[in-house]
Design a binder for these strands. Sequence first.
DNA 1: TTGAAAGCGCTAACAA
DNA 2: TTGTTAGCGCTTTCAA
Lengths: 345, 345
Amino acid sequence: MVTIKDVAKAANVSISTVSRVLNNSGYSSMSTKEKVNKAVEELKFQKNMVATAMIKKQTSTLGLIIPDIKNIFYGELTRAIEDQAHQYGFNVILCNTDNDLEKEAEYLNFLLRKGIDGIIFSTPEINDKNIREVMKNRPDVPLILLGSQVKNVRLDEVLVDNFEGGYQATAHLLDHGHQRIGYIGGQKDSYATVERYKGYAKALEDYGIEPMDEYLKLDEFKIHSGYHRGKELLKMSEPPTAVFAGNDAIAVGVYKAARELGISIPEELSVIGFDDSQFAEIVDPELTTIRTPISEMGEKTVELAIQIVREGKNFKETVTFQPSLIERGSTAKVNDHYLVRKYPS
Amino acid sequence: MVTIKDVAKAANVSISTVSRVLNNSGYSSMSTKEKVNKAVEELKFQKNMVATAMIKKQTSTLGLIIPDIKNIFYGELTRAIEDQAHQYGFNVILCNTDNDLEKEAEYLNFLLRKGIDGIIFSTPEINDKNIREVMKNRPDVPLILLGSQVKNVRLDEVLVDNFEGGYQATAHLLDHGHQRIGYIGGQKDSYATVERYKGYAKALEDYGIEPMDEYLKLDEFKIHSGYHRGKELLKMSEPPTAVFAGNDAIAVGVYKAARELGISIPEELSVIGFDDSQFAEIVDPELTTIRTPISEMGEKTVELAIQIVREGKNFKETVTFQPSLIERGSTAKVNDHYLVRKYPS
DNA sequence: TTGAAAGCGCTAACAA
DNA sequence: TTGTTAGCGCTTTCAA
């Protein structure tokens, strides 16, 4: 390994001089600069960042905590984050926790000991236990929440307006004449699940409809959840004519359930998703969904994180992005014929 | 920050004693062990891994180079790799290159300077330029190829038998009576594209059919490629009755093309994919595909990498996994009626 | 404008 | 069984 020492020897200067020209700090004459740069090139010297990290206490790496990178939503989010981090000269260490708090704690421990410069949390169920622990023991490490909030914890947060999204989705369905609208959410304690539900309930209320408990199902933000809960919904004696799925994966599961039951979308059942992930354009009919500006949120999060790292202070800022309705083929006017056929008198 | 020094002071021993009990190396009496451990607990001491890395020249982190984590195939692969790495106490730094050699070089540079212990390469088009550079300048850093081979470079490799997979896929179609079979591959120079094509061609040959250039399309391993190339294929005056898609994403694109042209799968067109990714079970009908044992390959790769890191030598081993046919609903017997309808006399 | 020297937090001889 | 000491490769005073 070529070190600064080798460069110093080759350039016939001291290592501190080499360091100075390498970092463009302090003074150095043009001629020594040239000498040093020449030696650097000849020896193909690359500064060892571990040594720098030890002194500066900065590693130019961020930790990213998510439940599962296989989940397409996190794939898109992670890509945006990694790209932006790369722009700023940072690397990201990926941590998949499966929402397991112990696993999360292990990762946290590792990240902290490796001296990462900041941690981005993006898990649906954020339990404050680990977060509080980190805040207490390592107040120097920037933490940023992406997509979720934690009760009673004040941190920088980047969110999508889930309430608004839930409202838009439900209003869209109501505007198409649907009255029996199911909601299949993710984890019960998830911020997104709760907020989207609130938007859903508010829309129903505004349209003069009482939310029915039977139409409310909570599970996980996964395909199989949508499938099972969707089946439950569709097999009811008075099934909903439309389903607001907590995310696109759940919507995909609902498609599958409907297919198996011979129910066609959107003729007999309208489905609306959330996120506008890749899934939305793959299914047939293409999925009407609420777009979460995933990339923008990822980018903003990294910018915030790096700003905090550089300026050394949390802003305790909350940045909220607005969702938007993307209308495709999975939602349509409620079909009275269907109602008649399934429930004659 | 609590350091080993603080612990030493609290336990009333020297720092080397603390280091010894921390690492369970050398001798130390039961009583001092207890003293030290107590101090460690009280102070909540965590060993700074940056300092250790500097001395040991090991960071317990691996670099993973892929084209794009948004791509569902790499999501699954990355998850398997990260999990296994975590098992061994390693972290992984994610690098998305978009197959851009310059970007790849940048990442490589970073990883090397950060002292990562090994690099896993998993990109379809592996150009040997960057790899050779690393091998030359940093022969001490383990490199492992996952999913691809590079000409004239001998490295540890973990592969799936692409030829066999291509053969199986094509034979399956041929067994169903198809004679006009299209192949839509990924990047022209990609190892997977080429090997799968060879398997395809060999199967045709074995069944006495001459491969036709018009039925061969190459693009990228992406949905839109499958869509565009699929349309080209399906709009031919004598279109194929079956398509072997180079991967599941391409197959999804073919579905879309078929849908737009009013061609139904599998009645009028059989489609077979490759990988058995999440996409396969989402589409309707579910996709018949060749299963690549993604998780197993990811795990094996990490095991190899860590073995090399620990034992300090490359084995130059090639591990090949066997693919398998997963039959679902997208392939069926060739439909003579269709042929007649579309080409009367 | 440059160099000597101390030190980041830890490990590993070596001596005691 | 323990402590002293010399580094790992770099940055950063401080003197010169």
